[in-house]
Amino acid sequence: MTTTAAPAGLPPAAPAPTPAAPAGPVTVEAAPGVWVAWARSAAPSTHPADLADVGGRPPWQRRQSLAARGLLRALLAEVRPGAEDVPLAAGPHGRPVLAGLDGVGVSLSHDGADDAAGGDLVAAAVAPGRRVGVDVQLPHGPGPSPGLARRCLRERTADLDRLPAGRRALEFAWVWTVQEACVKADGTGIAGRPWSLDIPVRPRTGTQGDLTWIALRHLSVHPVSCAFGDLRAR
């Protein structure tokens, strides 16, 4: 797993050069004590509990879920040794938790094709002493439909429309990863109505309630975002 040097604090607001696509999994310390890993190809988990959890899912869901869990276990081995073998359990709204380790926040995400062609993008996050959410999204098509754009962006829809046609799908994906990361960190999932969160087009970093969110666009060519907050706030 390739580890990128951690930034001194939150990422700068100024634009940064577009990173190159990595050859394998990348790990960064997105903020102090908040670790995020992502990959286009990750070794699937072979943990018995993980295999049992995904046993009844369609093949493409099993593939993506095991790749994300494998990435999470590799990240745990790197930043929280000893926790990589702890079974995952489902918390409220399906939020993953490490059984018996409530003080270590974890999150998973995956996106990709629903067939054997693969091309998946997976991510994992670990944040000891915090709650955390991570999300990835591969841009699809030319961009969101007008209705979907209005639902997720409201008055910011015009900002998306002003972008070149070839950028709209990518920038919408970045917005969605931030929205999803926030509701994952908050533990509400889809019930938290991620589309209702006010996130700017071309997001970089900000706050949502008591959460801090970061779009890792200064480090990743693929839309990957994380959000985190103090465990004591919940």
Rank of each mutant, 00 (worst) to 15 (best):
A77W: 04
P92V: 06
G103F: 01
G103N: 13
E78H: 10
V122D: 07
G118H: 03
G119L: 07
P139L: 05
G112S: 08
G112A: 08
V79R: 01
V104G: 02
V134F: 12
V134Q: 05
V97T: 08
S109L: 11
G147H: 11
G143P: 07
G105Y: 01
G147P: 06
P146Q: 14
P128H: 04
A127L: 01
A89S: 11
V126P: 01
V132E: 04
V136A: 04
A127W: 00
E78G: 02
P92M: 06
G119F: 12
L108W: 03
R80K: 11
P139N: 09
V104M: 15
A83I: 04
H140K: 14
A77K: 03
D85N: 13
L88I: 13
A77I: 04
H140M: 09
L138W: 05
Q137D: 09
R131L: 13
G133I: 12
D111T: 14
P96T: 15
L88N: 02
L138E: 05
G94E: 06
L101G: 02
L138S: 07
G119T: 10
A90N: 14
A113L: 13
V106K: 05
A116V: 03
D114G: 10
V79D: 00
R131W: 07
H110Q: 11
S107C: 11
G112Y: 07
D120Q: 14
A89E: 15
D102A: 15
G91W: 13
G100E: 09
P96S: 11
P146C: 13
L98F: 03
V86H: 04
G133M: 09
A74G: 08
L76T: 01
L88V: 13
D114E: 15
D115V: 00
A99Y: 00
A90Q: 14
G143K: 10
L101A: 09
P92Q: 04
E84N: 03
A99Q: 11
Q137P: 15
